[in-house]
Computed example of a mutant assay.
Amino acid sequence: MNLLIADDHTLFIEGLSMLVSRIEDVHIVGDAKNGKQVIELCQSQKVDLILMDLEMPEMGGIEATEIIKRDFPNIKIVAVTMLNDYNTIKKALRSGMDGYVVKNLGISELQNAIETVMNGHIYMSPEITTILALGVAGRKPNQAYVPDLTKREKEVIKLIIDGLTNDTIAEKLFLSPLTVSTHRKNVLSKLNLKNTAMLVKYCGDYPEILF
């Protein structure tokens, strides 16, 4: 099966590619940084499944999905995003997306999502199913939990986003590398994220957590 990854953050593409590489019979045939590139790749090579971010420059994932489903109806598309509000989920599914998962997913859920949509069914992360059900019922989901990050943790995050290593961050903040590593682990735990790529993407989607 030929798979395409669409996301405007290189670190996240690399992280997702590592997960995909652990799934048998799935081959990554390319990656795209925006919806226009996704469409061009679909036109130039055989693509069976796209893991699609929703917010990308030039053309977002929902608009790209509408075009792809019109021109290549057999291609399956799964949204992989940090966006979890009811209206966005509804728009994504109406555009023709076959699945919707959040970016802190692990290898087992990713594999389950791929198998489900390739068998002709819709797949959604459990929390997305809950939000969708509450929205249909006219009920508001509980407000998303925003973890209380310390001032030091926010400083570390900003330097991580800048691409600095633990050693360099330690020098800048006059800390030991071990302390920086501990802050990094605590931040990932508080945000329920699995790696630095997801942290960078999360902060891009929700920059308010740094202020």
Rank of each mutant, 00 (worst) to 15 (best):
P126V: 02
N112K: 15
I89R: 07
L105R: 06
G138M: 12
A64V: 09
S108W: 01
K76Q: 11
K151Q: 13
V78I: 15
L134K: 15
G120H: 07
E127R: 15
S108C: 01
S108Q: 10
P147C: 05
E115G: 08
E109L: 09
Q111K: 15
A92H: 04
K76E: 08
L83N: 14
L105Y: 03
M97S: 04
L54Y: 05
E109H: 07
N84E: 10
G106A: 10
Y123N: 04
Y145E: 10
R70H: 14
K76T: 05
I68T: 12
K69N: 08
E66L: 08
A92Q: 07
Y100P: 02
K140R: 14
E115K: 15
M82G: 08
M82F: 11
Y145H: 13
Y145W: 02
V146E: 09
N74T: 14
I131F: 01
D71L: 12
T116S: 03
A79Y: 03
I75K: 10
V146R: 10
E66C: 08
I67R: 12
N84H: 11
I114W: 11
I68S: 10
S125G: 09
G99L: 00
E58C: 06
P141S: 12
T130V: 10
T129H: 07
A144C: 00
M124R: 07
G61K: 09
D85G: 05
N84L: 06
I75Y: 07
I107Y: 07
T129E: 15
S95E: 04
I131T: 15
S125I: 02
V136D: 06
Y86V: 02
H121K: 14
K103V: 03
G120S: 05
I68D: 10
I89Y: 04
A133P: 06
Q143V: 13
N87E: 14
I128D: 06
T129R: 14
V146S: 08
H121G: 03
D85R: 13
S125Y: 05
G135H: 06
L132I: 01
N119E: 09
I62M: 09
N84G: 10
Q143T: 12
T81R: 12
A144I: 13
V101Y: 00
G61C: 11
I68L: 09
M82A: 15
S108A: 11
D71R: 14
A79N: 03
I67F: 06
Y123P: 02
T116V: 00
D85S: 11
R152E: 13
N104C: 01
E66Y: 04
P73W: 10
L149F: 08
K90Q: 07
G61L: 09
G106C: 04
V78F: 04
V102E: 04
N142Q: 13
G106L: 02
M124P: 00
T81E: 06
M97W: 02
L54V: 13
I107D: 08
